[in-house]
Write a protein that binds this DNA or RNA. Structure first.
Lengths: 337, 337
DNA sequence: CTGAAAGCGCTAACAT
DNA sequence: ATGTTAGCGCTTTCAG
């Protein structure tokens, strides 16, 4: 391996001078700079980032954490979009991205405590995840792409307005005359799922209807789960005329299940998704859904983290809710009858 | 920051002894080990991985590279699956995953030359990507999840059998009586796309038909592109009765486009996808597709890289083709007459 | 404008 | 079984 020392020797200057031209730290006479630069490219010198990190105390790397139990839905388009937003911002700031798909019981804080990363971004936190212990104590700069449960919690986060999103969806369905609705919220250990339920409840109640607790279902974010539950629901004596889904993948599964059960979408049953993944527009029929800007969410998370890392932790936590938008396509229609 | 020295001082032993208990390198008397361990947990000592890497010359990190122009399809389910396979294997081997979504013109070899990673995995290589320059010279252990163009190239790769997959698909369509077929292959700069075309050509020719070059289309792997092209195709005087798609996302867009054009799937037009993403089963109608085991592909890539990193580069390159499987669902039927 | 020396936190000989 | 010493490659005082 070619080191600074090699370059220094070959160009007849001191190590420090080479270091200076490499980093542009201080002024070096044009003449020596040229010579050193020549030697650097002749020898193919590349700085050793590990040595740099050791002395600087910074790894120039950000850890992006996806909790284990979420692994199975890692194939979810949602994640890529957020990740893409994060990756873009980090790249523009010359930061590396360490992707940590939590697999075993390793406390997340360890990545920071061992100086492997300078900060952390958490995608989807599961309530009660023991690996989260120690994150706050570590003083690691960190940002969550979903809000944290506890009230008055000083964590930094960006999140979509799940409450408002569900409210819009419910209003839409009610305005179409639907009264019997089912909500397939998502897995119970996700905060965002609880928020969806909250929004649903609020809107239903506000419209003078009563919430049918039996029609709130906690199932995985997967087409399969949606498909299976749709079949089940249609066997009930009084099946719902509208199904609200926690995400688009589920909704697509629901539509398929409904068709297998001999129901037409949207004539017999209306369906609404959440996310507006790229596919939503091209599903059959095109999906009515609540759009959240996942890419932007990732960008904001990364931008916030960078601010935390450079200017130190701000006194007040950064907490931002991104508004959602109801996109009406072809899976919702007037309630039958 | 708590260092080895601090622990040594606090427990009254030498630095080296502490290092030994931390790493379990050599025998230490049970009594001192206990004491040192106690101090370690009292002080909350965590080893500095950067210092370790500097002296070991290893970062214990693997770089996973997704070329820039592919970025826009990073939301493609295909990538997650491969990535998940890679992540799992790396995690089991205590290796970190540095995700490099190439954004600007940074030579990929740099990650290795700067000692940031110990090896590289390339997901999807674009023909003629200038950032690839220097990768071979760097002697970095690396594995590609797609084969490389040049013949007799000593690169290591795992890849799906695109040629065979397309052949199966064509045979299936021909057996159903289809004669006018269109192929939406994918972007021209992907090797896998050229292989799809090759398989298509071979099977068509083998069956005594002639390849209609005008019906081979090079379009993006996206629902949108599929949708738009389907609409276009249906306006032709003699539209195809079957459409082969380079991937499932495209196929789903095609189905939607066909329906907008008033064609029924599969009665009027048959459609075949590629990948068998989780959604394929739940699209409407359920998609006939060519399955490739993307998760396994990722696993194999990572396993191979680890072998390369630990046992050194083997003399013969590792090159493996994973077989594909035709999954017949409901988007293919007898050709209309 | 340039150089010498010290040290980041750790591991690896080589003692003892 | 344990300690001493010397670096890994780089940056940072502090001198010249």
């Amino acid at each position: 391996m070619v080191t600074l020392k090699d370059v220094a020797r070959a160009s007849g200057v001191s190590i420090k001078t080479v270091s200076r031209v490499v980093n542009g730290t201080a002024e070096v006479s044009a003449e020596t700079r040229q010579r050193v630069k020549g030697v650097i490219s002749d020898l193919g010198y590349q700085p050793n980032t590990m040595a740099r990190s050791l002395v600087n105390g910074r790894s120039n790397t950000v850890g992006v954490i996806i909790p284990h139990s979420v692994g199975y839905i890692f194939s979810h388009p949602f994640f890529n979009e957020v990740l893409r937003g994060i990756a873009e911002v980090l790249a523009n700031n010359n930061l590396n991205l360490l992707l940590h798909l939590a697999h075993q019981n390793t406390p997340y804080a360890q990545l920071y405590n061992q100086r492997r990363v300078d900060g952390l971004i958490f995608m989807s936190v599961l309530t009660g995840d023991p690996n989260l212990d120690g994150v706050l104590e570590s003083k690691s700069p960190c940002v969550f792409t979903c809000r944290i449960v506890e009230e008055n919690n000083p964590t930094n986060w960006v999140d979509a307005d799940f409450v408002g999103g569900l409210e819009q969806a419910v209003e839409h369905l009610i305005s179409l005359g639907h009264r019997r609705m089912a909500l397939l919220a998502g897995p119970r250990n996700l905060i965002s799922v609880l928020l969806r339920v909250k929004g649903y409840r609020q809107a239903v109640t506000r419209n003078g209807l009563t919430v049918d607790e039996d029609n709130i279902h906690y199932v995985d974010f997967s087409s399969e789960a949606g498909h299976d539950l749709a079949l089940q629901l249609m066997q009930k004596p009084n099946p719902p005329t509208a199904i609200l889904c926690g995400d688009d993948m589920m909704a697509i599964g629901v539509i398929q299940g409904l068709q297998e059960a001999g129901r037409r979408v949207p004539q017999d049953v209306s369906v609404i998704g959440f996310d507006d993944i790229s596919l939503a527009r091209f599903s059959t029929p095109p999906l009515t859904t609540i759009r959240q800007d996942t890419f932007r969410k990732g960008q904001i998370a990364a931008e916030t983290l960078i601010r935390l890392m450079t200017k130190g932790i701000e006194n007040s936590p950064f907490q931002q809710i991104l508004s959602t938008q109801l996109i009406i396509r072809s899976t919702t229609a007037l309630a039958p009858r």
